[in-house]
């Protein structure tokens, strides 16, 4: 099976029904994508497939078509994306465990809606749980990322 992740081609051999999440984490070592529930209820495992946010815990690897982007493909500590800069400036994270998924959902939102309203943010982000309660700062970071990306 062939997979393209963050622009890099990978060849893997696993059952077609293995969720993409576990291919990423265990087979390929992309541990930035998190396991939270396994049933598409928390958003911790969010990645992009051709730019669209998907829940990798509930996407069989055999159903993957096209490019996958994970948090590692958004930016790195030495080369931060604007959205990650905004996350750091707003000091969003608490434990941080949900934040990869939050950033992936937010990045996809900003792609389709560069200047999202509060309702659009609620709509796009309410599938991502944060047990630490960072929602107000996530909202602020999305807005500041939007203005950064515009400017």
């Amino acid at each position: 099976m062939k997979l393209t992740i963050n622009g890099k081609a990978h060849e893997i051999e696993v059952e077609a029904d293995m969720p993409l999440l576990w291919v990423l984490r265990d087979e390929l070592g992309y541990t930035g994508t998190k396991f939270g529930c396994g049933v598409a209820a928390c958003g911790a495992c969010t990645v992009h497939m051709n730019g669209e946010p998907i829940r990798s815990c509930s996407t069989a690897v055999g159903d993957v078509e096209g490019e996958i982007t994970t948090i590692e493909g958004i930016g790195t500590p030495d080369n931060l994306a604007a959205i990650q800069e905004a996350w750091i400036e707003e000091q969003v994270a608490q434990c941080g465990y949900c934040q990869s998924g939050q950033i992936m959902s937010a990045a996809a939102l900003l792609q389709t809606s560069p200047n999202p309203s509060d309702d659009e943010i609620d709509e796009a982000m309410s599938g991502n749980l944060c047990r630490c309660g960072t929602y107000p700062r996530i909202r602020a970071a999305i807005k500041s990322a939007a203005s950064k990306m515009e400017g």
Partner: peptide, 18 residues
């Protein structure tokens, strides 16, 4: 500024599960 923030915004913070 929290020292762990860059790692937590880039998926590079190591949790037990990682």
């Amino acid at each position: 500024p929290r020292l762990d923030m860059p790692a937590k915004a880039t998926g590079t913070a190591e949790f037990g599960i990682d």
